[in-house]
């Protein structure tokens, strides 16, 4: 078995004279949950298509499960699952028929279909035509076909867009269960606060390039975004406390019973010790580390949109 599930090196993809993917290097380890985030048109879908062998790179190499997906044998295709953005099916077919068709193509036993339909919660609707399905049901059917044959690698292109909150949660729970059994996944998403807790690593794409990649804490260190400390101070002492804390961070807001200040992540321990030194004057304290939202915005602002 190859060391890494996905290895993309120096990959460039142009459509006409428009460069959609610019010199991308990305490695996804076995069993990892990698999440791709980025603005519309950042190249996330194209990158996935390159990994699926649906389109060929103009330069660089793409290796998936140790093979070149563009020339890959059937064995590789049986080991991957793909849920495309806004998945579509033959609407005249019943849900069960759709899944059985894909199962036959993948060489998966028909018996597996029923248990997958139950897992995605479509068992009762399986004998209805796909044309009567809601968006959420189509998406479940999409995930069901991606799960056929217990793939080692899952590609999910915005799997939860257009789903209601409880469905989204179910969806991610399912993906988490799969990942516990060792399935590697590459998910693209716009719902930053959803993926934040469910990604092992996050890659941020912008204008066809990956501008940052790492775990959430690595990303926030790289971005060197400040964390925000919110203090509740005994009335009458705020001005004094604010003045003494000013060298340690940036005071954002002061009123008669509270202070908000931001400080770089590297300086936080110094700040905390200082705060402890005030004794009972500080009644309460909240620390808000930078969230994926903040990190994302930081990288999006850093480079001008072309």
């Amino acid at each position: 078995m190859a060391e890494n599930a996905i290895e993309v090196a120096g990959t460039v993809k142009r459509y006409g004279d428009k460069t959609v993917v610019t010199d991308i290097n990305l490695t996804v380890h076995n069993g990892e949950r990698m999440v791709l985030i980025g603005h519309n048109g950042a190249g996330k879908t194209t990158l996935m298509k390159l990994m699926l062998g649906l389109t060929h790179p103009n330069a660089g190499t793409v290796r998936v499960l140790g093979a070149n997906p563009a020339t890959a044998a059937a064995a590789l295709r049986r080991a991957i699952g793909y849920l495309p953005e806004s998945v579509a099916f033959h609407s005249a077919m019943k849900g069960r028929e759709v899944l059985a068709f894909y199962a036959r193509l993948k060489g998966v036993a028909a018996a597996e279909c029923q248990s997958i339909l139950e897992r995605v919660g479509l068992a009762r609707a399986a004998d209805r035509r796909v044309s009567t399905y809601s968006k959420g049901m189509r998406q479940r059917l999409g995930l069901a076909q991606a799960m056929l044959g217990k793939p080692r690698l899952l590609f999910l292109d915005e799997p939860t867009s257009g789903l209601d909150p409880s469905l989204r949660r179910q969806f991610y729970d399912l993906i988490d269960t799969l990942s516990l059994s060792g399935t590697t996944s590459l998910t693209s998403s716009h719902s930053l606060n959803e993926v934040e807790a469910r990604a092992d690593r996050i890659a941020i794409m912008k204008n066809g390039a990956i501008v940052a990649c790492g775990t959430l804490s690595e990303l926030s260190q790289q971005a060197s975004l400040p964390l925000v400390v919110r203090l509740r101070v005994t009335v009458g002492h705020t001005a004094d406390v604010a003045e003494r804390l000013a060298p340690m961070g940036e005071i954002q807001r002061v009123n008669d019973h509270g202070i908000d200040l931001s400080c770089p992540g590297t300086a936080k321990m110094v700040l905390f010790r200082h705060i402890a030194g005030f004794g009972e004057v500080i009644e309460d304290m909240d620390v808000a580390p930078p969230r994926l939202d903040d990190i994302y915005n930081h990288y999006m602002q850093q480079v001008q949109l072309q």
Binding site: L52, G53, L54, A74, A75, R77, R78, I80, Y82, P84, V87, A88, F89, H90, Y102, L105, K106, G107, Q145
Partner: peptide, 9 residues
């Protein structure tokens, strides 16, 4: 539907 079909063997 072609996009999905071509990711199959």
């Amino acid at each position: 539907t072609m996009l999905l079909l071509l990711t199959y063997p």
